[in-house]
């Protein structure tokens, strides 16, 4: 493949890497696994890139490939060290911006989301990224109605995790 294509791809991914990092954060529990998944998503994006050619926004197209890789294609790396409290370092908690209760609430929410199963996480991820139900449904291959029903159930699940 030509150098131009490589350059275009790497630049796009460099600018949009936050999306991939967020997926990795949701689906892995330690830094090593995070990097591993990031790499696999990059490989899958790169393999699919020739088929992309600008018919959608690069970022839109990334969501699908990244989630497919995380949910379906990715095999967890063998060396699995359970790290204790990765959640607390996942997101930069900017203490000055929030009052303590809100920050605490957010921490608990992130922790609860991490406990969901792979499919539920995918729905929550797209929801948090402000995707509408049409796009959520298309990405996962379910109907829009089912996506809504599922999202309501997930809210219920989160409620149970937060208030046992």
């Amino acid at each position: 493949m030509s150098k131009d294509l490589e350059h275009a791809f790497v630049t796009e991914l460099e600018n949009n890497q936050n999306i991939v990092h967020k997926v990795c954060t949701l689906y892995t529990n330690d830094r090593e696994a995070h990097n591993d998944l990031f790499q696999e998503i990059t490989i899958q994006l790169w393999k699919a890139y020739p088929k992309f050619r600008g018919d959608a926004k690069f970022s839109t197209w990334m969501y699908r490939v990244a989630l497919n890789t995380a949910i379906t294609l990715y095999r967890k790396s063998k060396k699995r060290v359970q790290t204790i409290d990765y959640e607390s370092v996942i997101f930069k908690i900017q203490a000055d911006e929030y009052d303590a209760t809100e920050e605490q609430q957010l921490k608990l929410m992130y922790k609860a989301v991490k406990q969901l199963n792979d499919i539920d996480k995918a729905l929550v991820f797209l929801y948090l990224e402000d995707k509408d139900y049409t796009e959520i449904a298309e990405t996962l291959g379910i109907s829009e109605v089912n996506a809504r029903v599922k999202m309501n159930r997930i809210k219920g699940k989160l409620r149970t995790i937060l208030n046992p």
Binding site: H21, K22, F91, Q105
Partner: peptide, 15 residues
Amino acid sequence: LELLKKDWQKKDVAH
């Protein structure tokens, strides 16, 4: 969840 959404979109991953 709305609170989380706002926070989520504002932040970069600490990576």
